[in-house]
Amino acid sequence: MTVVYLLIPAFLLLASVFGLPLLRYAWLSFHADSVLTGLQPIANDGANWLRLMHDQRYWQDLIQTLRFAFASVGFELLLGLAIALLLHQPMRKRGLIRSAALIPWALPTTVMALGWRWIFNTPYGPIDQFTSLSGISLNILGNPSFAWIALVYADVWKTTPFVALILLAGLQSIPNDLYEACTLEGASSFTCFRKITLPLLKPYLGLAMTFRLAQAFGVFDLVQVMTGGGPASSTESLALYAYWNALRFLDFGYSATIMIASFVLLSTIVAFGWWLMILLNQRGSMAVTE
């Protein structure tokens, strides 16, 4: 029973850091609080929520944010797995190579986003210089249909090492004798991968996915620096929209509404991911016992 009491300080800390701001925002989302109200909260009977329902821009941003999150996390998991498998192989200077692989992850996002903005620049960036050799100019960042792909590309470049790191830790936790038994039975290395590596790696895959989805859903700095949400608002994310409302428009009531709505959605997605992870985990352990 005493164990529960020992948890109280940690619980209080979490509640004050996460709980209080959330409650405050939930409360604020039912108030008009902007430069026009003299920055004083005035209750407005859910007008913010009504506005959100009819706010095409919110729904467009939601779709764009989900599109970005799923595309980038999907690629990151695939590439991260490949890199983790590679880094797991015994090789010379493995420590050095592993640390080198982490460099993109260690760079501040704004710095690397500025770099990518110039790399994708038309006509001075290297990408355009290369494609224009064959007479094609893609103008990626200036095109509403393609700009988001450039963002996914930059995000994958930066955060794949993070996914690889988690998966590498997972690979190291798999006991070697399982593989020995596998090869002894005469299975091909692909079968070993499918029957041993993948099932035992599932919890790690789930963990990496949950972390990355939560981060990608709140993407802000990358978009702000690379495109500012344009062209034609095709890359605007929910976090960017909430930020604009709060700090540019000084409309804190509506900004809080956007954030609470996004929080609920994100929690649902993460909870779903978590549930999926537990499910896969159970199946995974079953596969091994079979």
Partner: peptide, 22 residues
Amino acid sequence: TPVYAQLSDVLQRNLSESLTQE
């Protein structure tokens, strides 16, 4: 006007749609 940031944002969004042929 105190709501200039909103007005400018609306103009930028819509003008960008015209410039990119949306």
